[in-house]
Nucleic acid binder design. Sequence first.
DNA 1: TGGGTTCTTGACCGCCCATTCAAGAACTGC
DNA 2: GCAGTTCTTGAATGGGCGGTCAAGAACCCA
Lengths: 197, 197
Amino acid sequence: MARPREFEADPVAEALLDAFWQRGFTRTSIADLSAASGLLPGSLYAAFGGKDAMFALVAGRYVAKLRAALAGGGAGIAGLRHVLDAVVRITVGDPDRRGCLLINTIPESAALSPPARAVVERGLGEMRALLRRRLREAGVPRGGDLDRLVALLFAASVAIRVLGRAGHERRLLQDIADGALAAATAAAGIPARRRAR
Amino acid sequence: MARPREFEADPVAEALLDAFWQRGFTRTSIADLSAASGLLPGSLYAAFGGKDAMFALVAGRYVAKLRAALAGGGAGIAGLRHVLDAVVRITVGDPDRRGCLLINTIPESAALSPPARAVVERGLGEMRALLRRRLREAGVPRGGDLDRLVALLFAASVAIRVLGRAGHERRLLQDIADGALAAATAAAGIPARRRAR
DNA sequence: TGGGTTCTTGACCGCCCATTCAAGAACTGC
DNA sequence: GCAGTTCTTGAATGGGCGGTCAAGAACCCA
C-alpha cells in the first residue's frame, strides 16, 4: 500500500467533460483541463493518460448520460415524441448552449485518436439505432419507408443540436422536432396530434 | 509605382479556402496556409492581414459559391427539390467529404473574430431565407406551417452537410432530402412525387 | 519507527503557434 | 541611372502547446 489519491475520479471526469464540451477537443488545452479539474498536469497524466485518452473517457461518459436522458417515454409514437422533445429540452436547457459533444466533434474528428473517434462514432450510431427501434415499435415495417423516416428523425436530432449550439431560438428547434415528427407519423399512417404552441 | 506582386489574389484565396475547409479555422496554421498558397507568411500578412481576416475573406467567397450552387431550379416545388438535391450532390461530390465550411465552423465560432463570425452567421441565414422564399413560391402561406416547413428543410440541409462530413453513405443523405421534401409537399398540400431510388 | 510504494508538485522540455521585421529585390517615373 | 515605392524573403520573437520527470509528501505495513 502507499499514499492514497486525494481526489475521486468521477467528479474529476465530470469536470474534464465540461471543459471538452465547451471548447472542443483541439482548443481545450491541458492547462484548461488542469484548471477545470483542480489537478495539476502531472496528476492528470498519471490518472488518465494523455489528452486523447481523457477525451475518449469523457466521450464514453457523455454517451451514457445521453442514453439515460433519451430513455423511457414508452413505446410507439409517444416514445418518439419523448426522444425528440428531450433533444430539444437538453439543448435549450444548457445555458451555455454547448450542443452535443459528439456532433461538435465531427469537424475535428481527424484530430482524434482512433479509439476516441470510435467512441464518438459508436455513440452517434446508437442514437440512430434508438430512433429506428422506436419507429419499429410504432408499427413501421422494415423497408424503404423505415429508412427514410429514420433518416429524417436522425437529421432532425442532429440539426437541433447543431443549431442549438449556434444559438438559435427554441422556437426553431421545436419546429424542427414537430415537423419531423408530424412527417413521420403521417408517412407511417399513424394519427399525429399537432403539438400546441 | 513600385514592384508588382508576383501572384494573383484569386487563386491564392481559393487555396486558402481549401486549407480552411479541410482542417477548420483553429487547426489550420499559418504554415498550412503558406504551403497551400505558395506564399510565405510575410506575403500572406501583407496581402490579406491576419489569420482572422483571411478566414473572413475566404468565408465570404465560400458563401458566394454556395449561393451560385443552389441558385436556379425554377420556382415552386421544383426549386425546392433542386436545392435539396444540390445540397446532397455537392456534399457527396467532394471526395474529401469536407461538408460545409460554415456549419463546420459553428463549434469553434468562439475562436473567430466578430467580423468572421458575422460572415458565417449571415451565410447560414441566407440559406434559410432561400428555403423560405422557395416555399413561399410554392404557395405556402405565411404562418406557423411555413415556419415549421422552413425549419424542417433547413434542418435537413444542415444534417446532410454534417453527416456528409462524418462520412455517411449517400443513401442516408438522399433519404434525408427525400423525407424532408415529401413532408414539406404533403404538409403544404402540394402533390409530391416520390423520388425513384 | 522505518522501508516501500504511490501520489502530488511545479518546473521543465522541445516544438509549433501567429505575427513581425529588417534587408534585399523588382519595378516605375524622372 | 537614379530615387522612390512596393513586394518578397526568411529568420526571429514571445508565448502556449502536449507531455515528462525528479523531488518531496503521505500513506501502509512490518
